[in-house]
Amino acid sequence: MADYDTVLLDLDGTLCEYVRTKNDLLAAAFGELGVEPPFSARDYVERVDLYADRADSMVERRRLCFAELAEENGHDPDIGRAAADVYARERDHSNVRFLDGASEALAALRERYPLGLVTNGGPDMQDQKIDGLGVREHFETVVYAGHDTPAKPDPAPFERALSDLGSNAERSIYVGNNYESDVVGAANAGLASILVGEPPVDGSVDPLATVDSPADVPRLLE
């Protein structure tokens, strides 16, 4: 493998995961209000991004989404907004954890490379994960794609991180778990990538390598 002098990383599904699922959080949020969840996590996920042009933050998008989904299913929209607030509170620092081997891998990479974090999602959503994991000091830059720049797979967030680090694409590599956002996105910016997981058989771009776990990344780059 070629020598690299900069490593950029994804966050969700690459370094960490939620302890509780979205359905668990919905049950907790509506349960506190004495109401059975009137919609599923899938309903929420499929709808929430449609509110991007009506709200600047994920918190407000979620409140709009919960209100309209609640109303569509026979409840007062205020119940939806209240549940969204409880949902946000329940999704606190204790609800995120490292993937197996990710903490050790991150520490090993930090000893050898300047690191940048490139994650889809604004500070309101991602900061609680970064700070809950205690990893902010590991990164010399954090780019909130979809907030600071267009979201991945647009090349802009990768280019922003490289500019912040004074690095170039040819000497940098990106590690992520989502083929479209991470592998294709990195390629759009001229970066090689390591995919945590397996690429689709008909993918348009090949990652430089694939790994089963973030724990494998430092050894791969040796």
Rank of each mutant, 00 (worst) to 15 (best):
V48H: 08
D49N: 13
A84H: 06
S103P: 07
F39C: 12
D49H: 07
A70P: 05
A187W: 04
P77S: 10
A83V: 06
K129D: 04
N73M: 03
F39W: 06
C16T: 10
Y144L: 11
A186W: 04
Y4D: 04
R81S: 01
S204C: 04
E32S: 10
K152R: 14
A67E: 02
E60N: 06
E72D: 14
M125N: 11
D202L: 10
E90I: 07
G31M: 10
A88F: 15
V96F: 10
F98E: 08
T6K: 05
A102N: 02
S181M: 13
R42Q: 15
N23F: 02
I79K: 00
P150N: 02
G121L: 05
C65M: 09
A55W: 01
V142G: 01
D164R: 12
E72M: 13
G31Q: 12
A169L: 06
L191A: 11
V205L: 08
V96M: 06
L162Q: 03
V135M: 06
A156K: 11
G13T: 12
L133G: 05
D206T: 10
Y179N: 06
F30D: 01
R97P: 04
Y113D: 00
A82N: 02
E68F: 13
G166A: 04
I79G: 00
V118K: 03
V59C: 03
A192W: 13
V143N: 06
P155S: 10
V96H: 04
P218G: 10
A82L: 11
P155M: 12
V143H: 08
E170S: 15
P150I: 03
K22H: 12
Q128T: 15
A161G: 13
D78Y: 10
N178C: 06
I79R: 02
F139M: 02
E90L: 12
T21W: 11
P77R: 03
H93F: 13
L195E: 09
